[in-house]
Amino acid sequence: MIDLDVWADVRCPWCWIGLRRLRRAASVLGEPLHVRRRSFLLEPDGPVSPGQTTATVATSEWGLSSAQWESTSRRLRTEGRREGLDLAVDGALMFDSRPVHRLLKLAAVTDHIDAEAAWDATFAAHFIRNERLGDVGVLRAMAAGWGLRAEEIDGALAGGAFSEEVAHDLREAQRLSVESVPTVVAPDGRRVSGAAPVEDLVRFMAAAGAVR
């Protein structure tokens, strides 16, 4: 068993790419992969421009020129295709991912839910279909598709349930100086970027004692 903690945000395309690479690295080692998904917020105070496309925000708020963003977007799309992902990153909409993290925490402790599939489904909604994940109705429909019950979904979206679990992950990220995602942490404390090449992830897992 490969046992890892991974800090990630569903708004981060590299986090989805990294998830695919972690799975491939585990396959190379011939071991099952167990990932504890830890919440991270790219914008802890919420997005400055909710509902705007990533391409628009990149050139209006992040200080990138159109050419610089196109280069970044092209690289993300190329790396995504290598992992079987057809990313529509330009049209991905800004949203506060905190409610989604609460839903994902709920999925992780619900026996009949595949939490990894829920993360994949969220990434796909954001980066392939460019759904409005800042819309409560969209979130309800998405979480229902995972198999969660309506009352559970509403409890998590209301902000009480699983808020502390998300906050705990954010405090742990600060304590460990996790400043970018995806960040992978092994049982011995060593870490690596989850966006690293598969070969590097294989070496990391083997050397850091992640295989038990």
Rank of each mutant, 00 (worst) to 15 (best):
M1W: 05
I2M: 06
D3N: 15
L4H: 02
A8S: 12
V10P: 02
C15I: 08
W16K: 07
W16Q: 04
I17R: 04
I17Q: 04
G18Y: 00
L22A: 01
R23H: 09
R24C: 06
A25P: 05
A25W: 00
G30I: 11
E31N: 13
E31P: 08
H34M: 10
S39C: 13
L42G: 08
E43D: 12
E43I: 12
G46Y: 00
V48N: 03
S49A: 14
G51S: 02
Q52T: 08
T56Y: 10
T56L: 14
S60H: 05
E61F: 15
S65D: 02
S71P: 07
L76M: 13
T78P: 04
E79P: 14
E79T: 14
R81V: 14
R82V: 07
G84P: 05
A88D: 11
G91P: 11
A92D: 06
F95C: 09
R102S: 05
L103F: 04
L104A: 08
L104Y: 00
L104Q: 02
L106Q: 03
A107T: 02
A108N: 06
A108P: 09
V109F: 00
H112M: 06
H112Q: 10
A118S: 08
A118E: 03
W119M: 11
D120P: 06
F123G: 07
A125I: 04
F127T: 03
I128N: 02
I128M: 09
I128G: 01
R132S: 11
G134K: 02
G134H: 01
D135C: 11
V136Q: 01
G137M: 09
V138N: 06
A141V: 09
A143Q: 03
A143H: 00
W146Y: 13
G147N: 08
G147C: 10
L148Y: 01
E151P: 10
E151A: 15
E151I: 14
E152P: 12
D154L: 12
D154A: 15
D154S: 14
D154N: 13
G155Q: 08
A156G: 08
A158M: 07
G159I: 14
G160R: 10
F162R: 03
S163T: 14
E164H: 13
A167I: 04
D169Y: 03
D169W: 01
L170P: 04
Q174Y: 00
L176S: 02
E179H: 05
E179S: 09
V181Q: 01
V181A: 06
V181R: 04
V185M: 03
A186E: 03
V192E: 06
M205T: 09
M205P: 01
M205Y: 01
A207H: 05
V211C: 02
R212F: 12
